[in-house]
Amino acid sequence: MTRFLGLTEKMMGMDDRAWERHVNPWSGWSRLSILPLFAVAVWSRHWIGWWAVVAIAAVLLWTWLNPRLFKPPASTENWMSKGVLGERIWLQRSGDPALAHHATVVRALIVTSSAGAIVMLIGLALTNLPLTISGLAVTMLSKLWLLDRMVWVYTEADTARTPR
């Protein structure tokens, strides 16, 4: 599962500079728009025909641009920044025995999120609104829960670094 996350990090070209900017809570919160925008862009094929490809390309561009658009934050003392920092820690140290107690939950949330995405894609392919919305809801709620887990990872890692 961590390999999957690492692969998405590589596909996005997330270097140190992009991560510094992505920690900005504006980046994290605005990133939540991606899946709903993607669903609308795909669904728009029924309204605008082949022009939907332009809408889908715009969403993909937004996906890539988002972590690069915002300045590094003045403070990371907020839930979203801590979640993004936790993601980075998880990607770098998921094999760390000190973080092992998170692995089962992280794995379950990634599987649940992936299952929701598959349901959403089936709903989009079949133009089935209940399937699309259900899949989107499961995916987004799983992602938010995973982000909350990453806040926990960050907090534990930060506590381990802080001298007592």
Rank of each mutant, 00 (worst) to 15 (best):
S27A: 15
G28T: 07
R31D: 15
S33H: 02
I34E: 12
L35N: 07
F38G: 01
F38D: 00
V40N: 02
V40Y: 11
V40M: 14
V42Y: 05
V42K: 04
W43I: 07
S44E: 05
R45F: 04
W47Y: 13
G49C: 08
I56G: 01
A57W: 12
A57G: 10
A58W: 11
L60H: 08
W64E: 10
P67Y: 04
R68Q: 07
F70H: 12
P72L: 08
P72V: 11
A74K: 15
T76P: 00
E77F: 07
W79C: 04
K82V: 05
G83S: 15
L85R: 15
L85V: 12
G86Y: 10
G86L: 12
L91H: 06
Q92H: 05
R93Y: 10
R93H: 13
S94W: 09
P97S: 07
A100I: 13
H101C: 04
H102I: 00
T104P: 00
V106I: 11
V106S: 11
A108C: 04
A108K: 05
A108S: 13
L109D: 14
L109P: 03
L109R: 07
I110M: 09
T112M: 15
S114G: 12
G116Q: 08
A117V: 11
A117E: 02
V119C: 05
M120C: 14
M120Y: 02
G123Y: 08
L124G: 04
L126H: 02
L126A: 15
L129P: 00
